[in-house]
Computed example of a mutant assay.
Amino acid sequence: MRLFVMMSLGFVLGVLPVQGGLFGDAEQYVDVEEGERGFGSLFSGMAESSEAQWAWAQEKLAKKQWRSAGKVLRGLYMRWPNSVEAPAAVVAHADALMRRKEWRSAFTIYQFAVDNYANRLTDYDAVLAGQYRAAQEVMEARRLPFLFGGYRTPEMAIPLFEAVILNGPQWEGAPEALMMVGRCNQDSDAFEEAIVAYAELMLRYPEHALAESAAWGRIACLRSLREKYPSSPKILERILTATTVYLSRFPASERRGEIILLRNELYEFQARELFEQGRFYERVARNEVAALRTYVSVLELYPKSEVVSEVQGEMERLAAKGVVLSAEEAAE
């Protein structure tokens, strides 16, 4: 009997999806024509037109009533999505959320503006700038700040910065957004992903002021990878390549001296590695000819290395034992 009464009341009021409210929590879709006021709007404070709704929103914004202004603005572009005021209402809603420091929600509403009103936005660059700032705030935000100051999760901002780049590849702030993708990945120890972002920035914006910072970021990530995999010859070669590119593109850089010191360190490391290989041939493998050939390679490849005197001493000792290279071996 109770169910019959409630369903009857639903039909009387014109609210057909009563069953959803009775038997489930799913939100029911009600098809409302643009500008039409349903039963619920009698209590929502919706204005009679988009113009009136916009004026109402402006009053609330002027009073800095950001939360209620956001509700009025959302009501405008949801009820009158094709109105003249709708694009500005979406942006104003996002701006109001920024005022309330609801960075993720603001980013989402800005994206709604891009997805639905890209050709009708009066200041598209301002929307991208808003998204960029929201992404920065997400990147710098600290989780659980009451526990030892909290912790950052910069990786959460990566898809936001990537969306900014996708929305405005020619926007003047796109290089900064791409740089942030690299930094967020680097701060999250995702070094290979950071290297890709930095390399892309150097490729797409070679004349930008951030190109040098990206080149340095690439080297820094490779150095971090070398700390993790100190015996990897591939990573060492990648560092040498990256530093060569850096010096050739930015010869007057303030970091030039540091880059040269790094290359010298790698030079000595490679020389020492090859020297130790020769010792292995001599003392473990008992192959003195292979050892002598390796020592010769050290002198040829790393003539300025600090290990040269040690290499020469080993070669003299082998020569005293009668170990020599044939003409063919010496020519190899």
Score class of each variant (00 low, 15 high):
Leu299Lys: 12
Ala291Phe: 07
Tyr281Leu: 11
Met315Gly: 03
Val296Trp: 03
Ser309Cys: 10
Tyr302Trp: 08
Val289Cys: 03
Leu299Tyr: 04
Val308Gly: 04
Ala290Asn: 13
Glu316Ile: 09
Thr294Gln: 12
Val298Ala: 04
Gly322Asn: 08
Lys321Leu: 14
Pro303Trp: 04
Glu306Gln: 13
Ala290Trp: 04
Ser305Lys: 05
Phe275Lys: 01
Glu314Ile: 02
Ser309Met: 08
Val289Gly: 01
Gly322Arg: 02
Arg293Trp: 11
Glu316Arg: 14
Leu299Val: 11
Glu306Asn: 14
Gly278Ala: 05
Arg279Leu: 15
Tyr295Leu: 01
Asn287Trp: 04
Arg317Glu: 05
Ala290Glu: 14
Ser305Arg: 05
Leu292His: 01
Glu300Val: 10
Val289Thr: 11
Ala319Cys: 11
Val296Pro: 01
Glu306His: 10
Leu299Met: 09
Leu292Thr: 01
Met315Asp: 05
Glu310Lys: 03
Glu300Ile: 08
Glu282Trp: 02
Val308Asn: 07
Glu282Asn: 06
Tyr281Ala: 12
Val307Met: 11
Lys304Gln: 13
Val311Thr: 02
Arg286Cys: 12
Tyr295Arg: 00
Ala320Gly: 06
Val298Gln: 02
Asn287Arg: 09
Leu301Cys: 09
Arg317Met: 10
Pro303Arg: 11
Val284Glu: 14
Pro303His: 10
Val308Tyr: 03
Arg317Ala: 10
Gln312Ser: 09
Phe275Ser: 03
Val298Met: 08
Val311Glu: 00
Glu288Gly: 01
Val307Thr: 14
Lys321Tyr: 07
Arg286Met: 13
Glu310Phe: 03
Tyr281Met: 10
Val296Ala: 13
Met315Asn: 05
Gly313Trp: 03
Lys321Ser: 15
Val311Trp: 00
Tyr302Leu: 08
Glu300Trp: 07
Glu276Arg: 15
Val284Thr: 15
Phe275His: 03
Tyr295Thr: 00
Gln277Met: 15
Ala290Tyr: 06
Glu314Thr: 02
Lys321Asn: 12
Glu310Ala: 06
Gln277Glu: 13
Asn287Met: 07
Val284Pro: 02
Tyr302Glu: 06
Leu318Ile: 01
Val307Trp: 03
Ala290Pro: 12
Gln277Ile: 15
Arg286Glu: 12
Leu299Glu: 09
Glu282Ala: 12
Leu318Ser: 01
Ala290Val: 08
Arg317Trp: 05
Leu318Trp: 01
Glu306Leu: 11
Arg283Asp: 14
Gly278Pro: 01
Thr294Ile: 08
Lys304Asn: 12
Val296Lys: 13
Ala285Glu: 15
Glu306Ser: 12
Glu314Trp: 03
Gly278Trp: 00
Val323Asn: 02
Leu318Asn: 00
Glu306Arg: 13
Ala291Asp: 04
Tyr295Lys: 00
Tyr302Gln: 06
